[in-house]
């Protein structure tokens, strides 16, 4: 006979796997959504990255295409996971969440399962972005590729946890659609997805450091530039990977716990 605690852990794990798999299955049956997930990154990297690289790439002394590529890769994963987790609101409106939230499973497992599922979903787009990058000639060694993929998971997890926090404060899908751009677009610029952030004025530098996306973009760049000459590294990267990982870890934990607590309170104390 298994011990009760072991049984609880295995039950929660099974629940997490179930919830994650459901998300992934949903994606596989929704082809338009898969394509839509690729359009923006392809535009950003292909059009914006290539043209910026041609215009200013020589002056700043490092491959601007790779800079934009790594930024967009991190941003896409972060954004897709955040938006995916927020689909819990859609579930709530379709009343599917009733089934989810009536199950004898910890709320944290439900939310974590959702984040895991959306990570899988995001990576479906992420793989597309990587392939596109390789096709248009972003230089990659296999070590860089591996490290970037690993760093990408951090982007997904933090994006998912960020989504929980936003979700806990919003009531309907319409509100999500209205609010989401406002909390996302500033992050794209402050995190330096397209723009180097090493020479920002004081106020912007402060805001940039307060932006969660900054650290995942920086971690992906650390992963990419870690194996390239130090000159490019110094301009493209803002913090050491250790700082990035620590901040991401702390933010993930805080967002997840705090967001889940808020979410439960809203659900039950009506």
């Amino acid at each position: 006979m298994t011990r009760p605690s072991a049984r609880i852990i295995s039950r929660e794990c099974s629940a997490i796997a179930t919830i994650a798999y459901r998300d992934f299955t949903k994606l596989l049956r929704d082809r338009p959504r898969m394509l839509a997930g690729l359009i923006f990154p392809v535009l950003f990297i292909g059009v914006l990255g290539t043209s910026l690289n041609a215009a200013i790439g020589h002056d700043i002394g490092f491959d601007f295409l790779a800079f934009v590529f790594t930024g967009v890769f991190a941003q896409v994963l972060f954004q897709s996971s955040a938006a995916g987790v927020m689909s819990l609101i859609e579930d709530r409106e379709n009343d599917f969440s009733q089934e989810l939230f009536i199950a004898p499973v910890s709320r944290y497992s439900i939310i974590f399962g959702k984040i895991l599922g959306e990570t899988l979903v995001s990576y479906a787009a992420g793989v597309g972005v990587l392939l596109f990058g390789l096709i248009i000639g972003v230089p990659f060694t296999s070590l860089q590729l591996l490290l970037v993929i690993l760093a990408g998971f951090a982007a997904c997890f933090l994006g998912g946890a960020f989504g929980v926090l936003v979700l806990a404060n919003l009531s309907s899908q319409r509100t999500v659609a209205q609010v989401f751009p406002f909390i996302l677009f500033p992050q794209i610029f402050l995190a330096g997805v397209f723009n180097p952030i090493d020479k920002l004025p004081l106020v912007l530098a402060f805001l940039s450091r307060a932006t969660p996306l900054t650290y995942v973009v920086d971690l992906v760049r650390n992963a990419y530039y870690g194996a390239t000459p130090s000159g490019a590294m110094a301009r493209a990267v803002a913090f050491s990977p250790l700082v990035d990982i620590t901040v991401i870890g702390v933010l993930f934990f805080v967002f997840l716990v705090f967001g889940t607590m808020l979410f439960i309170r809203r659900e039950q104390n009506r």
Binding site: R11, A17, T18, N94, L100, P104, V105
Partner: peptide
């Protein structure tokens, strides 16, 4: 009161999802 099935899944998948959530069977 309002149906709470996942429309993206098959009937059996909805049931399997439930069984795993309730820890009856591993997923």
């Amino acid at each position: 009161q309002a149906p709470s099935l996942d429309k993206n899944l098959t009937a059996e998948e909805n049931i399997r999802f439930h069984a795993s959530l309730y820890g009856l069977f591993g997923f």
